[in-house]
Simulated scan of single mutants.
Amino acid sequence: MDLKAVEKPLASIENILSHFPVNQPCLIETGQTLPIAARNGTQPRKIVFLLSGAMICALGEGEKKQNLAIATGPSILGLGQLAPSGAIAQYEAIAPSMVYSVTVDKFIKVIEENQLWPDVMNIMLTIVNALAVRTAACGLHSAYDIIRSYLIYMESETTCSLKSRYTVVKYIQTFSRLSRSIILKILAELKAGDFIEMERGRLVSIKRNLPDRF
């Protein structure tokens, strides 16, 4: 399985959102971050509904910070907190985003009252599958394998408009530990071999099948 094969469970997301009337949505500007819960535990844990826009999910800080995924509206963020020791993720807006939040307790109450756990599980399993595929991509044996995987994903992805939003180098570095020099070297050779077309650092298209080996 690859990333393009992991489909967003839109029906389950919309079904859950229909049970939570939006009262006061909040606009998160590009570059602003959205912590799901306070680190000191003094504020209620919250589930966040991303109504529109796009946010990147990360765990950790500094050199240990790891970007995990890009979420686009509509999405439900923070479901990991349903576990007893759920991790506190940080979300950064990469486009203006409208969000609305409820406490974890209220979320669970509405889910139980309306028997929506199958939808919650469908969303969580999709997230797990996407993270597993992305982790597998980062664990490939060579830098070329990783770059090839992400180029194919960028070419096929349409929801986040990745090709216009990111340069290839920035996107690959967002989700991998590869150095800029290695990425640029491999991209240059793929361009020289007429495998890809790029403009101002952005992927225009994959012109022919990328070789399995580099």
Rank of each mutant, 00 (worst) to 15 (best):
S164V: 00
I28W: 02
K109R: 13
L203P: 12
I182P: 10
E199T: 12
P9T: 01
M1I: 12
A137P: 03
M198Y: 10
M124E: 05
S176M: 15
V120R: 00
L187I: 09
N40H: 03
A95I: 02
I152T: 15
E29I: 08
R134V: 12
L27H: 02
T30R: 02
N23Y: 00
V48M: 07
N67M: 13
A83S: 14
I56R: 04
E14S: 02
E61T: 04
G80S: 08
I70L: 09
A5K: 14
L125P: 08
R165S: 08
A87G: 10
N40Q: 05
I47W: 15
N129A: 14
I146K: 14
I76R: 05
L3T: 04
G31A: 03
Y150H: 10
F20G: 05
I56V: 12
R180W: 03
L3K: 10
Y100E: 07
E157M: 02
T30A: 01
I123T: 06
S101V: 00
G60S: 10
L187Q: 04
M98A: 04
L187F: 08
A87K: 14
M98D: 01
D105L: 06
D212Q: 11
P96Q: 04
A136H: 14
L34P: 05
V102Q: 13
R200P: 02
V128T: 14
Y153F: 12
V168I: 14
I196L: 08
I123L: 08
L178R: 04
A93M: 08
P44L: 07
M1Y: 00
K163V: 07
N15P: 07
L77D: 00
S164C: 06
S101L: 04
G60V: 03
M1R: 08
R39S: 09
V110N: 13
A37V: 00
E29Q: 06
R148F: 04
A58V: 12
S12E: 07
A188W: 07
F107Y: 14
L187S: 04
A11L: 06
Q90A: 01
I206R: 07
I146C: 12
L203M: 12
F195L: 09
M154A: 08
P84K: 12
L125R: 09
K191A: 11
R45K: 15
A192L: 06
I172Q: 06
E112Y: 09
T135V: 14
P74Q: 03
R213H: 07
